[in-house]
Design a protein around this nucleic acid. Structure first.
Lengths: 347, 347
DNA sequence: TTGAAAGCGCTACCAC
DNA sequence: GTGGTAGCGCTTTCAA
């Protein structure tokens, strides 16, 4: 059933029917009611492509997520983030177009997306510290919000991010307060902005405590189980192995545990920190220690916020870039909540 | 730059330019070369909506993934599956439209998707044993492939699935061979087809070994960390606690470990089985036991296969329903590979 | 081998 | 308050 058939069925013009259905004021209330009721009855739903052609709007938002070339793997956080965003889009009548793009040779894909006209805006995932996709999108004039930041880019842009630096600084501080001096960091790739910021936080805490960072205790890589496993295996063989470990992902933390299991060795107090995609905090039970983390549900909330930001950017293109910084959840034992305030801005 | 501008720029008609770009034969080779080269030069890319309107094809595939109403959570396997599928779509010039739909009140969403005309076909994730979405989609005449099966549905449809029954049967058999008699199953919701099949496999192995299933050792629920934790906590307090555990998800397995960590108790030989979303097999290191699992990379392959199936279904609507059953990977120690053949079909 | 023009389904401008 | 109609950018007959 299309508009033409529906309007003939109603004995009205397409114009009137279209107006009634789109909530324009210049339709008699009675006429509108009749139109709406018949439309529902026959299950009329306008064709999105035709509507898009006519209005110039696609009513769809693109999410571009990077897929590791080496491991062909997707960071699981994106699923929850997107699920939150999706809820917002659906409520607003938007679709969600997903593009998985391999790192490298991205530019063509963005131009493509732009020219095809299938999306009204984009969410960019997994930014690097230096990320020229941001320049490109600005140049293309396609509204976008970055999930994360690209710290080395100068021009302003919209983003939403977790306070990774603060979360890792606080976590490190807590371990130090507990007496740890040899604290390992098993991080994501530090060309990625989030990983770099986490390292900054880790280093800041060490420095304030007068602990010299040990390069042997700092590992970065794609956040696989294998990374955690091999890093931990290596470290436990050191003359002075770490007594505590911070990891950047629950996946990596699983690998760390494998390596520990092999030895039976209890490493320090077996402390891990995870900042993403776990339900309750990875080691909450045995850790007598708070853990900062983005729980799955808070990641979902971030996705919602990002979607709202983008939709309002699209609705009002005059708005300048807008930013939002979110604190990691603090998990102690089995209760979760927002992190308590910290002295001064640590972004 | 649109077709009109491009053709004026070339001094040709839109018709000829369109033909040349779409590979129609009736264009002089020299003309075509010129058109193609200029088009590339100016970065012409046809507007997808207009093209869709004119051709009646959307050049996009929908993926509908269920979001748990209770936990607002997405099963992480879908990310890898979709990433694989996405690669196939991109290569074929298709987009991917993602719909996250809460369980319940789904029907309207499908009619909506159909009528909006934004997709040429659908992949359905997370089927239940009885799943009327399948009837609905058949009725709507929208090509689709189910990721998984809906065992209680009679009418034929296309699907791709893992051999969940066999994987869990074999895993259970192996545990029995190792001497275990009290084997726990911490499963997904058994209204979901995959979870039900896993239980069938588990029960079949017990029965063949003459072991009576113990309802106290069989738990089902949404596959959260919490589920594994609380189930294991409860079971370890039993008079005769299990000596081995099978879990349906690595997330749940993490919860199981938490519960074990609290006690220091070594449960049997600490055996878990995971069928999804881990890199190397969850407990590979301490398990002197094979583990059946869908590794992340094989899930990705499944996604590719599903996408190929759907695209060929769309290309040739005369084709009847097609099915494909995939074996779980067998992981021993650190090496992975396909499971060895088993006597007879266990589907 | 090329071009003119109708039409995909809808919106929005202009006239009544 | 309602209707006629010109596009939106493309494909696809039909003619030349």
């Amino acid at each position: 059933m299309n508009l033409k058939q529906l309007s003939e069925h109603l004995g009205l013009s397409q114009t009137t029917v279209s107006r009634a259905l789109n909530g324009y004021p210049e339709v008699r209330e009675e006429t509108r009611r009749r139109i709406v009721s018949v439309a529902r009855e026959v299950g009329y739903i306008p064709n999105a492509r035709a509507k898009g052609l006519a209005t110039g709007r696609a009513m769809s938002i693109g999410h571009v997520i990077p897929v590791s070339k080496a491991h062909e793997m997707v960071n699981p956080v994106f699923a929850d983030f997107i699920s939150g965003a999706s809820e917002v889009y659906t409520a607003a009548g938007y679709d969600l177009t997903l593009s998985m793009v391999e790192d490298g040779a991205q530019e063509a894909r963005y131009r493509d997306i732009r020219a095809k006209g299938n999306v009204d805006g984009l969410i960019l995932h997994g930014p690097h510290r230096t990320d020229h996709r941001i320049d490109l999108l600005s140049e293309l004039g396609l509204p976008f919000v970055v999930h994360g930041r690209a710290s080395d880019m100068d021009a302003p842009y919209s983003w939403i991010d977790m306070n990774n630096r603060r979360a890792f600084k606080r976590a490190t501080q807590l371990l130090i307060e507990l007496g740890h001096r040899r604290i390992a960091l098993i991080n994501g790739l530090e060309t990625m902005d989030f990983a770099w910021r986490r390292r900054e936080g880790y280093l800041a805490a060490l420095e304030e405590a007068g602990i010299a960072p040990n390069p042997e205790l700092m590992v970065q890589g794609e956040m696989t189980e294998e990374l955690g496993y091999s890093a931990m295996r290596k470290m436990r063989g050191m003359d002075a192995p770490p007594t505590a470990v911070l990891t950047s992902s629950v996946i990596t933390a699983i690998g760390v545990r494998h390596a520990l299991d092999e030895t039976g060795l209890t490493l320090g107090r077996d402390i891990s920190l995870v900042t993403h995609d776990d339900d309750l905090g990875y080691l909450r039970n045995r850790a007598a220690v708070p853990v900062f983390t983005a729980t799955r549900s808070s990641v979902r909330e971030h996705g919602k916020r990002a979607a709202e930001m983008l939709l309002s950017l699209i609705a009002d293109p005059e708005t300048g870039p807008v930013q939002e910084l979110l604190e990691a959840d603090l998990i102690i034992g089995r209760s979760t909540g927002p992190a308590p305030a910290l002295e001064g801005p640590v972004v």
